[in-house]
Design a protein around this nucleic acid. Structure first.
Length: 563
RNA sequence: GUCCUCGUAGUUCAAUGGAUAAAACAAGGGACUUCUAAUCCCUAGAUGAAGGUUCGAUUCCUUCCGAGGGCACCA
């Protein structure tokens, strides 16, 4: 990439001047008037060497100019000592050619070079709703998985689901009380049973005892009648989740279940209890986190059941058995950030190698503006509800379009999922999202549909040109470099940085700025024409379309044929 | 109480210690007989408070104020 090349060039020149510097910071100036790249090294070095920064910068810039590569047009000193680099016409022309050639592969990097990576995300619980939190986790997890793949990782997707535990017992208890037989179970019944069970557990002592009893039985598979209901309910839930994954565009390689991790987790905890990593307290097995600046957590409850923490230890082992990962990324809501730290501490004591390779990413919560929205299913906003509502709004827009009903439905699904995913991915991962249908899910401006529309628009121009026998071709004759051209070469840097920092929102910000610039370009330039520049403008258009498509691909957002 | 996150335009949110703090929505004004107006152009508007480090702080440190989350058998 060009940034690497410039860094190397600077380093070599400095070496000739007998100046050694560890890391050269090369950034894009916010203002295009200051060039395409900029470095602050003169300001940093001048102080160490007790020189005047501007004079020092000029000295370096002078040396740099002497043997600048053909990709650089000029090098200037500005401001308090920034050295600014302006890329050459040759560079932009070559880059444009490269984009058209690489097409679907433009933006791929290799800094993770076949690194075996496993990403765990979504993690819904069978017997419970697939709610907007899972939608967030799925969207973010899928985007991070794809980012890793674009940077060269050999990636596996994992989904860890809680098919045992108190929530299941609550459902089983309610089913028994309500005389629900296995043939009557469906997804609506399950969520109703969960509500009934939860309420009873909270309000009724006897029910609480009975539910705890059932909980044990589920762990032990010791009751045939419960077993039948359990198996049926579990299957209905999991099948239902699959329909959602399909819509959202996720395919998991591995499914892990708490019913498997619990047993192993318990063994691990008891083994390391002997080795004094854990200790007993009030009949429970705990880890004292205080000596590490953390807090105490229970790994096995006083009635002998493994808690989430123990299961997680089992999971890390099971994951590694399945896939000998070099990196394991776990994506969850940020409300568990604190105890994931405890967990990683424990892991570092008993499985140091695995702990080193594990990264937890906590994403923010979807929050609703107060009193703004109510869902038909009670307190929980389901993913399905969100999808339906957004879809309805999209339909209002495309209703008048002259298309077959089937096509409308297809387009509306692509756009609504794009809108939702965009609104989740556009901001930093850790922050909460205030979810408001009227504002968060926008179809104009800073939105998924805006990107999709821009892409469709660009493609439509290219198609029209093709019908008139005009094809994109990069011109190398004398002409002014547009702002758009000065943006498109940055895409591979964006995918790299986003990958290094696990931050899909860098991609989003870049794409939206690129799309805005293209739309402005579109408004002021007639792309298809009989003049000489037409083919070059088509080449730029094609490049924008490629980047938007590839970028949206990373985000897991599809582009419709038309809209 | 304590630990962790976070406070940026009216709202939703960007900004690898850098140059004039980026956008979108909402507000006001304009642009379709011409490649898709889910678009474009113009106007107005922001770093919670106080100190400190630095040539330079939205970013790092300290204190305060405010929001959210964790702190023993739920995940």
């Amino acid at each position: 990439m060009i940034d690497e090349k410039i860094k190397k060039f600077i380093k070599e020149t400095l070496l000739e001047m007998s100046i050694s510097i560890d890391e050269i910071e090369l950034e894009h100036p916010a203002d295009f008037n200051y060039g395409d790249y900029s470095t602050n090294l003169a300001m940093v070095q001048a102080k160490k060497m007790k020189e005047n920064p501007i004079k020092f910068a000029e000295k370096i810039a002078g040396e740099l100019t002497k043997n600048k590569p053909k990709e650089i047009e000029k090098i200037e000193v500005a401001g308090n000592g920034f050295i600014n680099f302006y890329l050459s016409k040759d560079f932009f022309a070559d880059n444009l050619k490269e984009i058209l050639k690489k097409d679907k592969n433009y933006g791929k990097n290799n800094f993770l070079k076949r690194q075996k990576t496993i990403v765990e995300f979504t993690d819904p619980n069978p017997f419970k709703e697939f709610h907007i939190g899972h939608l967030m986790s799925n969207t973010i997890g899928e985007a991070i998985a794809r980012l890793m793949e674009w940077n060269g990782a050999k990636l596996k997707r994992a989904n860890y689901q809680g098919d045992v535990g108190l929530h299941v017992a609550k459902v089983m208890w309610a089913m028994e009380k309500q005389n629900i037989t296995s043939d009557k179970i469906n997804i609506t019944v399950l969520s109703r049973m969960y509500m009934i069970g939860t309420k009873a557990y909270k309000e009724n002592e006897t029910a609480k005892k009975e539910i705890n009893e059932i909980n044990k039985k589920i762990y032990e598979n010791s009751d045939d009648e419960i077993e039948e209901l359990y198996k049926k309910g579990r299957k209905i839930s999991l099948d239902y989740f699959e329909t959602i994954y399909k819509k959202l565009g996720t395919k998991f390689d591995y499914y892990f279940f708490e019913s498997n991790t619990g047993k192993l987790g318990k063994e691990i905890v008891n083994e390391y209890l002997k080795k004094r990593i854990f200790e007993k307290s009030d009949g429970a097995i705990i880890f004292k986190g205080e000596k590490y600046g953390l807090h105490t957590r229970v790994f096995q409850s006083s009635d002998g059941l493994p808690t989430y923490e123990a299961k997680e230890l089992g999971l890390s082992k099971i994951k590694y058995r399945k896939y000998k990962y070099q990196k394991s990324i776990v994506i969850t809501g940020n409300e568990i950030n604190e105890y994931f730290k405890v967990l990683l501490k424990v892991m570092s004591l008993i499985f140091p190698k695995l702990a080193e390779r594990t990264l937890h990413i906590g994403h923010g919560m979807m929050r609703l503006p107060k009193g703004k929205m109510s869902s038909r299913t009670g307190d929980v906003i389901t993913a399905e509800f969100v999808l339906d509502e957004v879809s309805k709004k999209i339909m209002e827009v495309i209703e008048q379009r002259n298309m077959a009903e089937e096509e409308k439905n297809k387009i509306s699904e692509i756009i609504s999922i794009g809108a939702i995913k965009y609104s989740i991915l556009k901001q930093k991962i850790g922050k909460d999202i205030i979810f408001d249908f009227d504002k968060s899910i926008s179809f104009e401006g800073d939105s998924g549909p805006y990107l999709q529309y821009t892409c469709v628009r660009a493609e439509s121009v290219i198609e029209k040109a093709k019908a008139n026998n005009k094809k994109p071709k990069v011109a190398s004759e004398e002409k002014k470099i547009t702002k758009l051209e000065r943006m498109i070469y940055k895409f591979p840097e964006m995918t790299k940085r986003a990958g290094e920092e696990y931050s899909p929102h860098y991609i989003v910000t870049y794409l939206i700025e690129l799309a805005a610039e293209f739309n402005a370009y579109y408004a002021t330039n007639k792309i298809i024409g009989d003049d000489k520049g037409s083919q070059h403008r088509l080449a730029i258009t094609k490049a924008v379309s490629i980047i938007l498509k590839n970028g949206l691909e990373i985000l897991g957002i599809k582009v419709p044929e038309k809209m």
